[in-house]
Amino acid sequence: MGRILAFIPLAIAAVFGGFFLWGLNPDRDPNNIPSVLISQPAPQFDLAAIEGLETPGLSRADLVDNAGPVIVNVFASWCVPCRAEHGILTQMVEKDGLRLFGINYKDKPEDATKWLAELGNPYERIGSDLSGRAGIEWGLSGVPETFIVGPDGTVLFRYVGPVVGDEAIARFREALEQAGALPRGQNG
């Protein structure tokens, strides 16, 4: 009996150690928060266009009854990583023919307009979320974040942080393939 009891601390320590080893797995990002929106209908929101920009505004109605999956990208001109991401999104629109919607998060209209003029505007529609309320509806934790929304308005995927770098792009493209927005296997 005493013999078995004496082993208990070791056994507990081993179980803890197993969890720690799992926790150190390099793919795990302790800061990453899963979204509750996945497989759920996109949230209700209705955003006006950025003042002074011709691109129309964005609301939930624009995310349903599309022919294929669409990308919703949350961006802001004050967000440095958004600049890095911008070219990659533009390329996806130009080269892969994907449809890209934008939510301009807590950004002054004039800053956003200037930013888009400088870097190009790949967005089909952009909603201006000055108050950040739509951001809450989307469960936003930072900028940039990018969502893939299915043709029926279901949120299929969420990417936190800029889609920059080979690994991130590969992950995003894989999600696009799974959503059916890109033909499979194209990305090697």
């Binding site: 005493g2 013999r3 004496a6 082993f7 601390p9 070791l10 320590a13 081993a14 150690g17």
Partner: peptide, 14 residues
Amino acid sequence: SIGGSLALFAWRAP
């Protein structure tokens, strides 16, 4: 360190 000492404990404590 922890595993080793607890194993030693399990062996010697009884």
